[in-house]
Simulated assay, not measured.
Amino acid sequence: MAVQVYVALGANLAEPIQQLNVAVTALKALAVNDTFVVSAYYRSKPMGDVVQPDYVNAVAGFHTTLLPIELLDALQDIEQHQGRVRLKRWGPRTLDLDLLLYGNQHISKPRLCVPHYGMKQRSFVLVPLADIAPSLTLPCNTSLESLISVKMRDELQKLIDLS
């Protein structure tokens, strides 16, 4: 049985827009037919203290038949294929794919925490997610729209609208 999932995409190295375009193509291969949607691409400031270029971010949503760990493995394979090297927390990267939501499930395993632990505070996740699922209610019964402030919307610059 297919489940609705949402995946955050981010890149700030090696042609970030192209990195997201390639990742979108790879993610479509994980989706059940005709269920794939992707938000606009946004520019955002990096998190943390590491000096690095701005990020390009988006969120994709689709139905998949993959189990949560299988999906995580597939996302990490896509990252590695695109040259992802994990050197520094919140450091620059060619591609970052984070599983935000897997249906309404709460998953807490050593390799996977869903809903994604930081998604409620991150404008670069919430705003693109609202592009593709404006009426979404999170597994904690909080509406997505209630988490998004005007300030969050102002923090991001829309780069490419794919709708």
Rank of each mutant, 00 (worst) to 15 (best):
M1T: 11
M1W: 09
A2M: 09
V3T: 09
Q4A: 03
V5Q: 07
L9Q: 10
L9S: 10
G10L: 04
G10M: 08
A11Y: 03
A11Q: 02
N12W: 01
E15P: 02
E15S: 09
P16E: 01
P16L: 01
N21S: 04
A26Q: 10
L30E: 07
L30H: 11
A31H: 03
N33S: 13
N33A: 14
N33L: 05
V37I: 12
V38H: 05
V38A: 02
V38M: 06
S39R: 05
S39D: 09
Y41G: 12
Y41L: 15
Y42M: 11
R43A: 15
M47G: 08
M47Q: 09
D49P: 15
V50N: 08
V51N: 01
D54R: 10
V56M: 08
V56W: 01
N57D: 14
V59Q: 08
G61Y: 11
F62G: 04
H63T: 03
T64P: 15
T65Q: 12
T65S: 07
L67A: 06
E70Y: 03
L72P: 09
D73T: 14
D73H: 08
A74T: 05
A74S: 15
Q76A: 12
V85I: 06
L87E: 10
W90P: 00
W90L: 14
P92F: 08
R93H: 01
T94I: 13
D96N: 06
L97Q: 05
L100I: 12
L101D: 07
Y102F: 15
Y102N: 12
I107N: 02
S108I: 15
K109R: 15
P110N: 12
L112H: 06
L112G: 04
C113I: 10
C113V: 06
H116E: 12
M119H: 06
F124I: 03
L126T: 07
L129N: 07
L129V: 07
D131H: 15
D131V: 14
I132D: 00
A133S: 14
P134N: 02
L136Q: 02
L136G: 02
T137M: 15
L138S: 13
N141M: 06
N141V: 07
E145F: 06
S149Q: 07
E155C: 04
L156K: 06
Q157V: 11
I160F: 10
I160C: 12
D161R: 11
L162H: 05
S163P: 02
